[in-house]
Each structure stands twice: as structure tokens, then as C-alpha cells.
């Protein structure tokens, strides 16, 4: 993996990229994340995991499975049930030179910690003129599609992307889950690491030793000439499915996986959109004031004369996350994406 190319002025305590001898294997995203935590804990004694139920239980999604058994409770700590306290404690640990990895149990359960995140984690480097960087990774399972009851399915990325000082990373593949989490833990900047919980159990072949693109780079998952679907995290498989289905309509759709929302890869996005001329942004979070609005604006500002149609957005509705029996109406699906593609002014 290529964490070494991630901006880092000083040698990080997390060390360089992992070069593991373990061969390629089939794993779920949950297992890949578990491997990333395990390898980080093994290689860097300053890495500490803390959160609710991360110990004997291994986390409600089993992402920390076996870590306390292998590294002890000091390295993988079951905390009291208080998210602001967890993150606030992690801040103090980072001030003393440790590299905490915090698990928030669910997206909406992270909200009590937002003050610590916004007022301290995001700002501490800036507040201290670079003297007190906080290399903290905040892992948050996010998004819907798993039949969760209320408060268990929020796509909350816009809160984080609109807070300067945070990096916001969200993998859409098993390989990225491993590689980007390793890079996030090794980063000297705080990272909000958003894990698409509906992709936790999907399996793929991946090799921990194989490099992935660094934080801050978008990757073209599928080439195409008609239009590009710009997406990330939980919506990536939906977009790939839509691109497959679009062939029957005669459209050759590209799919661009952002992987990192902050820093945003303007360069790759601009290059791809200019070469294709039509773009749809897809995410499951609400549209108003959402990440897609920012992306559509940036693309329009930079690619106006290359666009054959306005940049469209396919997002969740501007509603509180619905009850599980209704969530499929809210989440962008293949049909809604193809409807948007159809509206890209093909006749002109």
C-alpha cells in the first residue's frame, strides 16, 4: 500500500506502509478492517483502540474481534458508554504521544462526541500553530440498508466534510477498507473513517501487501464514455450495478469512486468529467447541503465548457432516516440512477 505518499512532514509513529507477507485471500470488509487494526497494533506500540464493546465482544460488528485477547485491555479498551468521554480521552492520549483509534458504535451514536470532534480534534493543530497535532482515527459505521431501526442508519458525512481540520475517508471496496484504514491510522492528521456498514459482509479477494491509492485520490472503478457516476462508500456497488444495467439502454457509464471526501480529489474528478462531458453524483445522504451539492458545484465551476448537461444529483430524500420497512424508497437505487442518466439532455 502507498501510505508513504500521503502528506506527512515528519516520520509518523505509525511507520511506513505495511508490507505483509500474507498472501491474497478472500475476506469480507469487516475482516479486512479487523486485519488493518491488528496489523497497526502489531507494528506500532503507540496505536490504541478504544470504544464501547470493543473488548470481549469484538464490537457490535466484530471489527475489533480478538484484539483485546491478542494485545490486552490496555491496547484495546472497553470504555464507559459515553462518546464525548471516549473521544475526549483519546485527545488527551494523543496529546501524550499515543495514536488512538476510536470506534463509534453507530453513525448517530457519534453525535454526543461532535463537540470534542469539531472544537478540539479538528482544530487542535491549528489552535497550537502545529505544536499539538492529534493523530486520531475515528471509525464510524455509517449509512443504511441493513434494516436498522431509527438512529442506526444515518449517512452523516456532510457534518464531517464541512468541518475544516478533519480528513474524511470512506472505502467502498475490501482492499480499500484495509489500505485506507492503515493509511488513516498512520496519518498525522485526524481522520473520520466512515465504514459503509451495509458493505461489511461483502467478500472479495484482497492482498494486504498490495498497495492501494493513498488518501486523497479518487479511483475510476469502471471506464465509460456516455456519462460518469461520481460516488463513494455504500453507493459504489449500486453505481456499478447501474452501470451494468445501463448497457441495455445503450449507455456506457463510467464509475468514479471518490474514496476520500476530504481532501477532495479535484484533479481526478475534473479530468474524468471533462473527458466524458456528463456527470451524476450519487450518495445516500440527504441532498440539501450534502456532499453531492459541493461536488456538483465544484464540477460545474471547473468543467462548465466541457459539460453537455447540468451535473445531476441522486441522493436520499431530505427526510429523517425512514423506518427499515420503508428505507428502500429512500436509498438511491439502480432505477433512480438510470432515471437521472436519462435526464442528461441526450437529445441536444
Amino acid at each position: 500500500m502507498s501510505t508513504a505518499s500521503h502528506p506527512s512532514p515528519t516520520p509518523t509513529l505509525g511507520g511506513a506502509a505495511a508490507r505483509h507477507t500474507s498472501a491474497a485471500r478472500t475476506a469480507s470488509m469487516a475482516q479486512a478492517l479487523n486485519s488493518a487494526l491488528r496489523d497497526s497494533l502489531r507494528e506500532d506500540p503507540t496505536v490504541h483502540v478504544l470504544g464501547e464493546d470493543v473488548g470481549a465482544l469484538g464490537g457490535v460488528f466484530r471489527i475489533t474481534d480478538g484484539l483485546t485477547a491478542e494485545f490486552g485491555a490496555d491496547r484495546c479498551l472497553d470504555t464507559p458508554l459515553a462518546e464525548a468521554g471516549i473521544l475526549g480521552t483519546a485527545i488527551g492520549m494523543a496529546m501524550y504521544g499515543l495514536r488512538p483509534v476510536v470506534e463509534m458504535q453507530f453513525d448517530a451514536f457519534a453525535y454526543p462526541a461532535l463537540e470534542q470532534l469539531f472544537s478540539h480534534v479538528a482544530k487542535m493543530r491549528n489552535r497550537t500553530a502545529g505544536r499539538l497535532p492529534l493523530p486520531i482515527t475515528v471509525r464510524i459505521p455509517y449509512g443504511g440498508g441493513i434494516g436498522g431501526v431509527e438512529h442506526h442508519s444515518d449517512a452523516s458525512e456532510a457534518y464531517y466534510t464541512s468541518t475544516p481540520g478533519l480528513h474524511v475517508v470512506t472505502p467502498g471496496t475490501v482492499a480499500d477498507a484495509y489500505g485506507l484504514l492503515r493509511a488513516s491510522i498512520a496519518s498525522d492528521d485526524p481522520v473520520v473513517f466512515l465504514e459503509p456498514k451495509r458493505l461489511y459482509w461483502g467478500k472479495a479477494e484482497f492482498d494486504p501487501a498490495a498497495p492501494v491509492e493513498p488518501i486523497g485520490r479518487a479511483v475510476l472503478r469502471r471506464t465509460g464514455t456516455s456519462a460518469v457516476l461520481i460516488t463513494y462508500g455504500p453507493s459504489l456497488p449500486v453505481c456499478l450495478e447501474a452501470a451494468e444495467a445501463a448497457q441495455a439502454e445503450g449507455w456506457d457509464l463510467a464509475v468514479l469512486d471518490l474514496r476520500t471526501l476530504v481532501p477532495f480529489d479535484d484533479e481526478t474528478v475534473t479530468r474524468v468529467v471533462r473527458s466524458i462531458g456528463r456527470a451524476v453524483v450519487v450518495h445516500e445522504a440527504s441532498g440539501f447541503g450534502g456532499t453531492g451539492a459541493e461536488i456538483a458545484a465544484r464540477v460545474t465551476e471547473r468543467c462548465f465548457h466541457h459539460l453537455a448537461a447540468p451535473v445531476l444529483r441522486v441522493t436520499g430524500f431530505d427526510i429523517p432516516y425512514p423506518p427499515p420497512m420503508l428505507e428502500h424508497h429512500h436509498l438511491p437505487g439502480v432505477d433512480r440512477i438510470l432515471d437521472a442518466v436519462a435526464r442528461l439532455q441526450w437529445e441536444d
Binding site: A84, G85, L87, G88, T89, A90, I91, G92, M93, A94, M95, Y96, G97, L98, P100, Q116, H120
Partner: peptide, 11 residues
């Protein structure tokens, strides 16, 4: 206050 706790814990 929680920062003080975390720093003391780390020490």
C-alpha cells in the same frame, strides 16, 4: 476535563 483524563491515562 476528558483531555486531562486521557493524558494522565496515557502517562
Amino acid at each position: 476535563a476528558p483531555h486531562a483524563v486521557g493524558l494522565a491515562h496515557a502517562a
